[in-house]
Design a protein around this nucleic acid. Sequence first.
DNA 1: CCGCTATCTTACGTTTACGTAAGAAAAAGA
DNA 2: TCTTTTTCTTACGTAAACGTAAGATAGCGG
Lengths: 147, 147
Amino acid sequence: MTAVAGDRVYRIGEVAERVGVTPRTIRYYEELGLIRGSAEHVKGTHRLYTEADVTRLTELIRLRNLLGVSLEELTMLAETEEARAELRDQWAHTEDAAERRRIVESAIPHVERQLALVRSRQETLAELEAELAAKREHLNARLNELR
Amino acid sequence: MTAVAGDRVYRIGEVAERVGVTPRTIRYYEELGLIRGSAEHVKGTHRLYTEADVTRLTELIRLRNLLGVSLEELTMLAETEEARAELRDQWAHTEDAAERRRIVESAIPHVERQLALVRSRQETLAELEAELAAKREHLNARLNELR
DNA sequence: CCGCTATCTTACGTTTACGTAAGAAAAAGA
DNA sequence: TCTTTTTCTTACGTAAACGTAAGATAGCGG
């Protein structure tokens, strides 16, 4: 069970480059509890990240960029729940189905909160778009009027 | 030509409350050149704002909130052009049509830049939404699998 | 085992976007 | 005109989100 390949680990520099931030940012996020580390990382040693960690971090950065939320709000949104779930997911492969179900179940409302937030933002953006489009039309009308 | 009514002016406190910010924020924006003031406001006297000013400020705040851009980017986006255009618009009522046309023409690409930005943001949000929806589906599938 | 490079920890520095305090002055109201 | 309220200017303070520097150490390639 030494894995199906793909359990390659990355160091902070490589991860940072892949997701488009600096190592400092990643350590800062860990410090805030936004990503794991505080527990499973032995102080003084190099931090190691899995592909799943990279995926998660990428998602967080996207949420930050697109929604413009503060890191505190982002922490609320993402919670450490998912990280725990991801970790326990592998651990759960040998565990009983009931536990696995509980984990998956707890992950769903979390994704739905993100979805709701994204959609809400889409709606307000649609309103803004409509207003800008109307404004442009109005300007064009005025322009024709002046000929 | 003492106006058609509606040329009521507001002081900074009232404006701030209406758009949902503090007076300090408004002064700060003026300081950055995001809104007018530096020129037409006599130092030491109370600042006065028209309904058009309030509208403009509201729009700026919305762009800031929805797009999450920095005030520097916002300055680029909004430029002082529009403010000037607005002001000159009334002044242009007595002016020749050529000048009025020039003003309206210059305002259009400005609105289009904002529109482009909003739409671009909508696209990336749509992508994110699709991914989140897929993720939710995946989780639901796993959940059914566990029964 | 060794050297070199990437990381680690600690801690102070920086930028953005305002908050807040203080004293003076303008403007509104009676 | 006098009082009261709101605003003005100036300037230092602050929270968030990292940047940056320094000295030590981990860990990979040889």
